[in-house]
Design a protein around this nucleic acid. Structure first.
Lengths: 222, 222
DNA sequence: TTTAATTTTTAGGTTAATCTAAAAATTATT
DNA sequence: AATAATTTTTAGATTAACCTAAAAATTAAA
C-alpha cells in the first residue's frame, strides 16, 4: 500500500460520486467541475491515480474506480458520515455546519479511530442528513424512501433525509422545524405550481414549495 | 490572516518547543533535528515564516516566535492535548496511542470545533500524560510538581505526569500500574545506582530504576 | 459526411517543500 | 590571533499539484 495524499483521496471520492449514480465512467470535465480545478490538472492527476492502480483510465474514455480505489472512496464516505454524527450529536453542531469539518476529519489516518468512534456513537446507520453510513466493507444500508411530493393526499410519512445538501436549504428546514423524524401528513397537492400543503407533528399546517417537496425524503408510515 | 500550511504549523510548534524552555532563539540545527529535515530546508522555511511575520529571523542568529506565531503554536498545543483527552477518555485509546492521532487532529481548521470538544469533555486542565492544556489565550495552568526522586524517604506523592513521552516508557508504566493519580510512598533511596523503592496504593512494594524515578512527576501529598 | 463545437490531452510554467553539495559565517581550540 | 571545526546559508534540482494556451480527438450539427 503506497501513500495516498489527501488530494488524491478527494479525487477518488469525486470519481465515486460521479460514476456510481451514473453507472458509467467519470469524464475529465465532470471531475474538474467537482474538484474545482482545470481539466488539464485532472488529466495529470488521473494518470497518477492510474499508475497507483486506484482507477481504470483510458485516454478520452473517462475513468472508473478499481476495487482498491472503491475501497478508499467508501471508507472516506464512512469516515465522513460517522464524524458528522459525532459533531451533530455530541458537539451540538447544526446539520448545516457538520459537512465542512467532516470534510477534514475524514482524512485522519488511523487503523482504529473511526471504528472506535463508531462504537462510541452506538454504530449509527445514517448521518444527520439521513444518508446511509457504509460498513467497513463498503456496504450501504438501503431504505424504502420516496420524495415527499410522491405521497398521495391523505398519506402520512416521516422525514428521513434530504436530497439537496445546501446550507440554505438545511437552514430553511431548521427554521420550519422540518427535522429528521418529523411526521408529515400530505393534505393537498396543487397542480398549478406543484406546491403542497402539509400538516406536521404538532398539528400546524402550512404549504411547501415544489422545490422543498422534491428534496425531502420520507418513508410512508400508513 | 493568510493561509498557514500544516507543515508551517509544525515548524511553529517545533520552534515553540525549542525556544520556550531554553528561553533563547531556536537554532537552524535544532529545528532540523526536531523536524527531521535538512538544515537547508529549515533555512528555506524560516524565510517564508519570517515573510509571514510568524517568526523573527536574523541570518545565523536563530529564530523566535512573534506574538502571531506564538498564538498559533499554543493553539496547536491546546488542540493536541484536548484531542488526546477525548481519545483517552471517550474512545479508550491508551496513553501511548493518543499522540500520533492527536498530531493529525490538531490541524483541523474550525472556529468552534475544539472549544465545543473542550466543553464536551468538561474543560480538562491536563492531558493524559499530565501536561497542562493552555486556554485559548495561551495561558498554562502551573502546578507544584517535583520529580519522584526528589521525594525524601517516607514522603508520599501522587503521580501527576511524565517527563519522557516515549511509547516504551508509557507502556512500562502501564504494565507497572503507575498511572496518573497513583499514590506512591518513597521507602528508600539507594545511592549506589540511584534506584529507589516505593510502596503504591494497593500496598505492593517494589523498586524503580533511576531512569523511572527521574521521569515521573509527583505532587507531595503529606 | 464534412464542418463546427466540445472535450481532452499535451506542452511548458509556477509554487511549496524537500534534497545534496558546496560556499560562507560563526564558534571553538590551540 | 590563527586555524580548525561546526553551523548556517546558497545554489541548483526534484516532486506533487496546480495553472494557461494550444493541439488533438471525439461528438454534434448542418
Amino acid at each position: 500500500m503506497e501513500n495516498i495524499s489527501q488530494t488524491e483521496e478527494n479525487y477518488l471520492k469525486a470519481i465515486y460520486k460521479i460514476s456510481t449514480p451514473e453507472r458509467k465512467p467519470a469524464s475529465t470535465n465532470a471531475i474538474s467541475r467537482a474538484m474545482d480545478t482545470s481539466a488539464a490538472s485532472v488529466t495529470d492527476m488521473v494518470k497518477r491515480l492510474s499508475d497507483k492502480e486506484l482507477i481504470n483510465y483510458e485516454k478520452y474514455k473517462g475513468v472508473t474506480l478499481t476495487p482498491k480505489g472503491y475501497q478508499i472512496a467508501t471508507t472516506l464516505i464512512r469516515n465522513h458520515r460517522i464524524w458528522e454524527v459525532f459533531l451533530f450529536e455530541k458537539l451540538n453542531f447544526s446539520w448545516d455546519e457538520v459537512h465542512e469539518v467532516a470534510e477534514q476529519l475524514e482524512h485522519i489516518k488511523s487503523d482504529t479511530l473511526v471504528d472506535r468512534l463508531d462504537e462510541f456513537l452506538g454504530q449509527p446507520k445514517f448521518d444527520p442528513h439521513g444518508d446511509p453510513i457504509p460498513d467497513s466493507e463498503g456496504n450501504f444500508t438501503y431504505r424504502k424512501q420516496i420524495i415527499l411530493s410522491e405521497l398521495q393526499s391523505g398519506e402520512v410519512g416521516v422525514i428521513v433525509g434530504v436530497q439537496e445538501h445546501s446550507t440554505a436549504f438545511l437552514q430553511y428546514l431548521d427554521r420550519m422545524n422540518l427535522v429528521l423524524g418529523t411526521q408529515v401528513t400530505l393534505l393537498e397537492k396543487f397542480e398549478f405550481d406543484e406546491s403542497i400543503s402539509v400538516r406536521v407533528n404538532d398539528g400546524s399546517a402550512f404549504s411547501l414549495s415544489s422545490k422543498v417537496a422534491k428534496n425531502l425524503f420520507v418513508q410512508r408510515s400508513n
